[in-house]
Amino acid sequence: MSMIGEYARLTPAELDRAVRDPDWAREFVDELVETELDVHPEPSEARLHEVDKAWHALDFLLRRVDFPVDVVHGEEEILGAEDWGYGPPRFLRPERVRIAAKALSATPHEALIEGVLPAELAEAGVYPAVVWERGESLDYVTGHYQALVPFLRAAADTGDALLIWLD
Rank of each mutant, 00 (worst) to 15 (best):
L58K: 03
E6I: 08
V116M: 02
D70A: 06
I78G: 04
T142R: 08
V149H: 09
V69L: 00
P89C: 07
A129C: 12
A161R: 01
L148N: 11
V71T: 04
P150R: 01
L37M: 14
A54C: 13
A54S: 15
E82R: 14
E110Y: 04
W55H: 13
A57G: 06
W132V: 04
V130S: 15
E6A: 09
L117A: 14
E114F: 06
L163C: 09
L79R: 08
A119F: 07
D52C: 06
G159T: 07
E36Q: 10
L117N: 10
R93F: 11
L79V: 13
V149E: 02
H73Y: 15
P41C: 10
A103W: 06
A119C: 01
A103C: 04
L37Y: 14
D59G: 14
A106E: 15
E31W: 03
P43V: 06
R153S: 14
R20N: 14
M1L: 11
D139P: 01
S137C: 07
A111M: 11
E27F: 03
E77V: 09
A155L: 00
E77L: 13
R63Q: 14
V116T: 10
T11D: 10
G159P: 10
A25D: 08
A122K: 04
R9E: 03
G143K: 07
T11Q: 08
V71D: 00
H73P: 00
K102I: 09
W132I: 02
A124L: 10
E110M: 11
A100L: 09
M1Y: 11
V130P: 02
A119Q: 14
G159W: 08
D139C: 02
E76D: 13
G87Y: 09
D59F: 13
L163F: 07
L163P: 04
G80F: 05
A18M: 09
F151G: 00
L79T: 12
A129S: 15
T107G: 00
E27G: 15
E36P: 03
A156M: 10
L162Y: 01
A103M: 07
L148C: 08
I78E: 11
I164K: 11
V51K: 01
Y140H: 10
L163S: 07
H49G: 09
L32S: 00
E82Y: 04
A111C: 04
L138R: 05
V149T: 11
L37H: 12
D59Q: 12
M3F: 07
K102E: 15
D30G: 12
A147S: 15
E95W: 08
E36H: 08
G159V: 06
H73S: 14
V69M: 04
R47F: 05
V116N: 02
A156V: 06
E77N: 13
Y145P: 04
L148P: 04
F28V: 01
D21P: 07
P150Y: 05
P128C: 08
K102A: 13
